[in-house]
Design a protein around this nucleic acid. Structure first.
Lengths: 214, 214, 214, 214
DNA sequence: TATGAATGAGAATTCATTCAT
DNA sequence: GATGAATGAATTCTCATTCAT
């Protein structure tokens, strides 16, 4: 899927990147605080540090800002996820990947929340592109899980692998979108450990059973 | 927490209920389609079958409609959840409860989605009340899980029980809010079975271990 | 050609007519003074005697105002033209019709000018409808001229009749759109007489020739 | 009337002429297509082949472009009209002049139309100057007609001569501004011949009458 | 109670013009 | 001389809310 272009009348590529970053930064703060719809374009321009006229030199409509924000957050999360090095495909590595992912969500929780709550306001045009990015990230988990399965760490059918990947992904997001309750009652470490514990028991059980059957 | 009152200038209680139900019904359809912010009060009035003037006889602001809608959806989901009869607190009963809950989510998925996506637009005033309702529902799961633990079906700490309840609750919602992917690849039955399978293995493992240690 | 509808959210038909008339009256004055593009919707609303919000209850876009104005002016001119009673189809009657038409243009010259100068700003959608109205008026002249021809007042081919009708029509408008010069140098009467004189000589000549050839 | 100056910050006279010609050429195309008000300065600059900054080096305001365009079109039309050589002041020469004028209008019809429709948007400042140019052109016809009268080709009072000149001028423009109808039904030749026929009958009649009275 | 016309603050977007490079 | 990024006043249009009938 080709990247959806946001049109601009500015020619200086470097400037486009710079201004859009300012814009995104300001917008995230505002969206976080009051949501996309309650944020005005003037507020976005102001938060970005330039005039409303300048804002519109870099985008075509307010929705473009939302798109840029979502796009950017996905890239940020993804980039952070790609830090994980997984090569041996053991349960232990999966565990580390999950820990890493939860940590990333925790650090970028405002962004994750914004993306989560506002993505639905994207136009029919932009939505598929953003959903594609989400699936790409889910895919990263899928690859790890598949690796573990191939590596006989545990047994899962293809359908189970996919669902499990989604499941993990949502479990991470959950730390952000239910923070109003979770973060009042658990530390990130507690949350991570409890979720991991739950998952790993499962796989240990599998291994145990296999061991027994032998 | 006392129910947040939505003021009205109408005396006839029965009329209030009737009109509000019309209003909620119309609003859910509209919110589902275009979201709270993109829906106008005129559209809500029209969908409800009366005039904009009448709408404002029964509410004080547009946000009241959102509140009524969210409130109503929670009540509806809750009502459906209360159909479950749990008295013996066995794993099998927990399993049935989950199955029932997933079915309810599936049947009310539009409503669940609306609530899920629009609740954040509630005012600081109304939000706590709605979150309270959500916690009440989570509590229903907690009670069942606690019962099972007391009943030695499996062992969990208090913190684990709470998290598990939330986890289940989100897993159900997930069927609605990720339907763009899940429902393309799985039937409700598949989804339910796979999730249950995963949970139950876990508990079976516990029982197995316990059995062994004895 | 069906009348192009201008959408409104108002139900009271009488009110629509009343408000639109206020709107048209105000708009004509403003368009006359500064043209369509330099007139703002707020000015139109103010000139009409109501708020900008009310203005938009009766139209959908600024262009609707222009359409209503043009439409209205055509109707007004046409109505005035229909006062002419032509039944004997003599040169003398044609002459009277022309005199009447020139008088109407003179009386409605602001309107004629507005229509003349702003019609081109109508959307591709509305333009054909307005041009149709113009042709309808040209047709009125054509009918008279045709009658005269059938009545042997003078001889013209069909193509000549059409052109002559357009010619007369433009000659009338000319009194309005070149008023910056014409009305400084001629009275309406002078203008009318001179133009008539010119035309009638022509037809007298024909009759004379025919007389001679016989 | 002195030529209205359009200020510029550029010293190089040749460059001024060159850039302005580019500008005018681009602007005519755009004005033709969407009118003065709907054309942006950026579009003009682009069509002219240079930047918006450069555009403003050669003019002071958008309206200057309109003025330059109108001025230029008049010059162009005038230049073409001056090709006509009239020296004997006969009806036949008048006829040729008219034919030539109609041909010029036909060839420059886009320009004539632009001038016709947009001149009214000129400021109070520039308008008189442009109207003066128009009168100058009318004057060219007046000179020919006067010559003919002096030459006893036909008899007209001074007032009639002026009106006749305007009349001819408008008749030519009419071919452009009513092209939506005329050019669908007549070729330029037909149109010219019919209009000439009409005029000349008139004068022939005069001559005939004069002949008779002698 | 019900209606729907009226209101106007507020929002997105445009675009002529400027000015530093 | 040329460029094009920056500006913000101005404009169109929307829509929640009110209130007279």
């Amino acid at each position: 899927m080709k990247k959806r272009e946001v049109l601009t009348s500015i020619k200086d590529e470097k400037l486009i990147v710079e201004r859009r970053n300012q814009m995104i930064k300001g917008a995230v703060t505002l969206f976080k605080e009051k949501g996309f719809h309650r944020t005005t374009t003037r507020e976005i321009a102001k938060a970005a540090g330039f005039s409303i006229g300048t804002l519109y030199e870099y985008i075509q409509s307010k929705e473009d800002v939302l798109y840029l924000v979502c796009d950017n957050i996905y890239d940020e999360v993804r980039e952070r996820l790609e830090e994980m090095v997984v090569d041996r495909y053991t349960i232990s590595e999966l565990q580390q990947a999950i820990q890493h992912y939860f940590k990333v969500v925790d650090e970028l929780q405002d962004e994750v929340l914004v993306m989560y709550q506002e993505a639905k306001s994207l136009s029919k045009d932009a939505l598929p592109y953003v959903l594609k990015k989400e699936l790409d990230m889910v895919e990263m988990f899928k690859v790890i899980i598949e690796g573990c399965v191939e590596n006989n760490q545990f047994a899962l059918t293809d359908k189970e692998i996919s669902l499990f990947a989604h499941h993990l992904f949502v479990q991470g997001q959950m730390w952000a979108f239910r923070r109003w309750w979770l973060q009042k009652h658990y530390s990130l470490e507690e949350y991570t450990n409890m979720q991991l514990d739950f998952l790993l028991k499962n796989f240990s059980f599998q291994q145990l059973c296999e061991g027994e059957t032998v």
